[in-house]
Amino acid sequence: MKKKIIIIDDDVDLVEAMRLTLEKEGFEVIDAQEGEKGLEKIRSEKPDLIILDVMMDTQDEGFHVAYQIRANRSTADVPIIMLTAVGQETGFTFDKEKDEDFLPVDEFLEKPINPGMLIELVRKHLGQ
């Protein structure tokens, strides 16, 4: 059975670019443009992996979404890859090792995402 991946990002073109690569690799891709819709779809569609943009309407909407995913028992174990475009620019760098306690995501990936890297990480977190 095809693994299902949800991309939650408000940039439709970016979603399409990722969808292109992921579908070619044989994944099923669904998407949502904002956090609330994303959470709804996660509950109803039960994806195997979540790709989540950190910054949608607000600077940290992605974090709030991630917390809610982790807080819900049925979705708590779904791997999350968080997309950031922030990096050095806002003055704080995400450091997974350091922030693991309060950042409930499995991976940070800085945009723009190299397609090869995306596939590699998706496979890793799906245990393939």
Partner: peptide
């Protein structure tokens, strides 16, 4: 920051085509 989003989308689209 506003300029970055479109460039990221452009770059991601191009890389998607190159790969696939």
């Amino acid at each position: 920051h506003e300029l970055k989003s479109p460039i990221i989308a452009i770059k991601s689209s191009i890389d998607g085509i190159i790969k696939n």
